[in-house]
Measured scan of single mutants.
Amino acid sequence: NKASVVANQLIPINTALTLIMMKAEVVTPMGIPAEEIPKLVGMQVNRAVPLGTTLMPDKVKNYE
C-alpha cells in the first residue's frame, strides 16, 4: 500500500505548504502520493484542510 499526503495540522485556505504541515500515511481513498511532498512545498491550498485530512489534487492550486 502506498502512502498519501495527510495534513499534520489545520492548513488555512491559501496557505503555502511546508514540510512540517504534511505527513505520509496509508489512507483510503488515496490522495496525492507521499513521494510528491517535496514538489508540494510552496504550493498553496485552495481551501482549508483540517488536521488528519488527506490532501487530494483538487485541494492544491496548480497541482498536476
Rank of each mutant, 00 (worst) to 15 (best):
11 I>C: 04
1 N>L: 15
11 I>F: 03
45 V>H: 01
2 K>I: 14
47 R>K: 14
38 P>V: 08
45 V>M: 01
4 S>N: 01
55 L>F: 06
57 P>Q: 03
9 Q>I: 11
61 K>A: 10
18 T>Q: 10
17 L>K: 00
18 T>S: 10
34 A>M: 06
14 N>D: 13
6 V>A: 03
43 M>C: 11
31 G>K: 02
20 I>L: 12
12 P>D: 07
1 N>C: 15
42 G>I: 07
15 T>H: 04
34 A>W: 07
45 V>P: 06
1 N>T: 14
32 I>W: 03
26 V>Y: 13
20 I>W: 11
37 I>T: 01
2 K>C: 15
11 I>R: 01
48 A>P: 13
50 P>K: 08
29 P>S: 06
10 L>K: 07
34 A>T: 04
48 A>V: 12
3 A>N: 05
35 E>A: 13
60 V>P: 04
59 K>R: 15
25 E>V: 12
42 G>D: 04
37 I>C: 08
25 E>K: 13
57 P>Y: 09
30 M>A: 13
11 I>M: 04
50 P>I: 08
61 K>S: 08
50 P>V: 05
5 V>Q: 03
23 K>V: 10
52 G>D: 06
10 L>H: 15
61 K>Y: 10
56 M>P: 02
36 E>T: 05
41 V>I: 12
42 G>N: 05
20 I>D: 14
10 L>V: 08
23 K>C: 10
7 A>Y: 02
57 P>M: 00
37 I>D: 01
4 S>A: 04
18 T>H: 06
51 L>R: 15
29 P>D: 06
45 V>K: 02
20 I>C: 13
35 E>G: 11
42 G>P: 00
59 K>Q: 15
17 L>M: 11
36 E>Y: 11
44 Q>S: 10
3 A>L: 09
19 L>T: 09
37 I>K: 01
53 T>I: 07
51 L>Q: 15
3 A>S: 09
5 V>A: 08
12 P>W: 07
16 A>Q: 12
20 I>S: 13
9 Q>D: 05
17 L>N: 03
18 T>N: 07
30 M>P: 14
58 D>G: 09
37 I>W: 04
12 P>V: 07
23 K>A: 09
61 K>N: 10
23 K>R: 15
63 Y>E: 03
22 M>Y: 03
35 E>N: 12
9 Q>M: 14
31 G>V: 01
22 M>F: 06
10 L>G: 07
8 N>P: 01
2 K>A: 13
56 M>K: 01
62 N>M: 09
33 P>A: 10
17 L>C: 06
55 L>M: 06
42 G>C: 07
47 R>V: 15
43 M>S: 05
16 A>M: 12
58 D>Q: 07
47 R>G: 14
13 I>E: 14
18 T>K: 10
23 K>G: 09
16 A>Y: 15
31 G>T: 00
57 P>C: 05
25 E>C: 15
50 P>L: 09
46 N>R: 10
11 I>Q: 01
2 K>G: 15
44 Q>T: 12
3 A>C: 12
16 A>S: 12
53 T>K: 08
38 P>S: 10
30 M>K: 12
22 M>L: 10
5 V>F: 05
61 K>H: 11
4 S>I: 01
34 A>F: 07
38 P>C: 13
40 L>I: 07
63 Y>S: 00
27 V>W: 04
13 I>R: 12
11 I>V: 02
53 T>Q: 14
63 Y>F: 07
